[in-house]
Design a protein around this nucleic acid. Sequence first.
DNA 1: TAGATTGTTAATCGATTAACAATC
DNA 2: TAGATTGTTAATCGATTAACAATC
Lengths: 210, 210
Amino acid sequence: MPKNDVSMSVVRRLPRYLRYLEELEKKGVCKISSKELAESMGLTASQVRQDFNHFGGFGLQGYGYSVSSLKDKIIGILGVNKKTKCILVGAGNLGRALLNIKFDKLGFDLIGVFDVDKEIVGKKVSSFTILDYSDIEEFCLNNNPVLAVITTPSSVVESIATKLAALGIKAFWNFSHFDLSKKFPDLNVENVHLNDSLITLSYLIKESMD
Amino acid sequence: MPKNDVSMSVVRRLPRYLRYLEELEKKGVCKISSKELAESMGLTASQVRQDFNHFGGFGLQGYGYSVSSLKDKIIGILGVNKKTKCILVGAGNLGRALLNIKFDKLGFDLIGVFDVDKEIVGKKVSSFTILDYSDIEEFCLNNNPVLAVITTPSSVVESIATKLAALGIKAFWNFSHFDLSKKFPDLNVENVHLNDSLITLSYLIKESMD
DNA sequence: TAGATTGTTAATCGATTAACAATC
DNA sequence: TAGATTGTTAATCGATTAACAATC
């Protein structure tokens, strides 16, 4: 059972652990020590053990960790085995690219994709038919999605999020620059700021040229 | 002039500062105090002043900071005024979505988009003609790009990156799960792990339900 | 000058690392 | 049992916050 108030530094390492463990399992590795896992991930053995012990003792002293049971524990902690209902708003290039994500393998069930553009409403992208944004209210009342993926222009995000929050949305995966955390401090917001990421790289390149 | 060895915590806040300053400038705000800026960004005034002072004194005691000159300083620090040559490898959905990014506003000049799929090679997406991946070596020898955006399947990233590194690429903007930092410790790598981001949100939602 | 706010030093807090006893 | 490696406590390190002198 996960305990509360684990720091975000730890939480953000959990998906990485999961990825590495899945790779190990694929390779047929059954057992791994904190030392080996740390080395392959660029962490320290102490850090690995500290991280896991936030959630209870997952290992066996003198042996190490069972890859499959450690993986299962982390899946449980992250809630990847859940099927949290979600919608995607904004079926532009980025939104459509995100439709390739295996939401069901990440703990979500994508139940609706919306856009305002009448040109694309009704069309099929991957296995999803684009729905009309003007029907989103009724859709949410009927289906109660928990997460909204926001891939619309920043200018319309405030009004969309306000509507969705009123309809009971509890979390935003936000690809826009609108600061949803400030406006909705009680909701869960995860920002993906691609521009910031690329600019950071500009800085690192510049520094490495010195 | 930027000094060296500023921590990544600080560096990652710089693009956010830049965004907020651009918004302020758009609103016609000329002057801002560390206190005001901190409040609007969810930081502390101390943190804002510490951050800027890593790079020199940008403010005026008793007055605050000039929005436009602070913005210009940060642009300089981040190298956003540069035009670092870059290429994109993998013109699938995600790659094509990224073509909408204003690379030139973020310090880069996107000079080539590559894919292996003969079906799309030669086609135009946005203002870019998709080039044949088999010509990438010659292209790099002629044009010397510095950054490669990697939006191919993870399985082929190792061989692509090995080739590009040998051709003088200095940085990767990596959207795959392949661990480029481990294989190329001397290159600049910025990872965008969308799956990890979504999984983190799964955890946060789960926690907030308790 | 008085008020405001920076630049900077010192204190605090939290995360990482080290150490080692517990134990498989 | 001896060796190995965890779980956990203590030490260290670094980042954030607080405080205040400098100064516009």
